[in-house]
Design a protein around this nucleic acid. Sequence first.
DNA 1: AGAGGTACCTGGCAGC
DNA 2: TGCTGCCAGGTACCTC
Length: 271
Amino acid sequence: MPELPEVETTRRGIAPHIIARRIVELVVRDARLRYPIAARAASAIAGQQVQDVRRRAKYLLLVCDSGTMIVHLGMSGSLFVCDARDSPQKHDHVDLVFDNGKCLRLRDPRRFGAVLWTTRAPGDHKLLKSLGVEPLTAGLNGAYLFEQSRGRRVAVKQFIMDSRVVVGVGNIYASEALFLAGIHPARAAGRLSRSRYDQLADAIRNVLSNAIDAGGTTLRNFVNGEGRPGYFRQRLRVYQRAGMPCDRCHGVLRQIRTGQRSTYYCPQCQR
DNA sequence: AGAGGTACCTGGCAGC
DNA sequence: TGCTGCCAGGTACCTC
């Protein structure tokens, strides 16, 4: 489930439970994630104290005394705090056990997630060093998108999902942001005007921050309690609504494929 | 350099 | 009920 709003909500939810706690043990029940969890990571992490929980793109960064644990939730991952004695369920692959008997548990049915350990500055890590701007910072603006898009023929939807340009815009919110900005998702990125990129930058920021607000309420149980992931109550305006009426013009919403991904839009409102 | 395709993996659902 | 095929919110890596 995780797009940036859920990763950020997870970060906010887990941070107060784990900051300043000491890690007793990394329990790996299944190391076969996107990258196999290295045995040396487990030994390095034991004994570390968590100093901060940060986020870069969809990566969570658990900053410790002498290194950083990098966690990615992939397509199906979730992280929650529970009692270390709670019996793990089928896809609960990793526990980070703390000195108070609690643990941070990673559940990831599809195993596209990742748990990595680095002793360097996390920004220098291979997976992080080529990432583009954060969408909720001033770095994302119309001038930047306009400049980055010149000469690019890809569909604008693929362009805003390109993590080298801007991070954190997943398949759901790419469709939603383009709807808000009134831009057809298949338009060539390099042919959109500067003013339309101003609108698009605003739309991306709005849709993500609204979703974070929604996620913050719906995921409270998920972090505190029984480890059941919540659903965003965010009202999606086009995503998975093909054939239904557009709530702006009442025309029929459509689904197409852009870069092998489902894309939803309103043919009347988006040009 | 940019564009397009493939791969990783499991589960849920529609259709037969 | 059980099988098959398709789809799914991410992203690294390969080739052209």
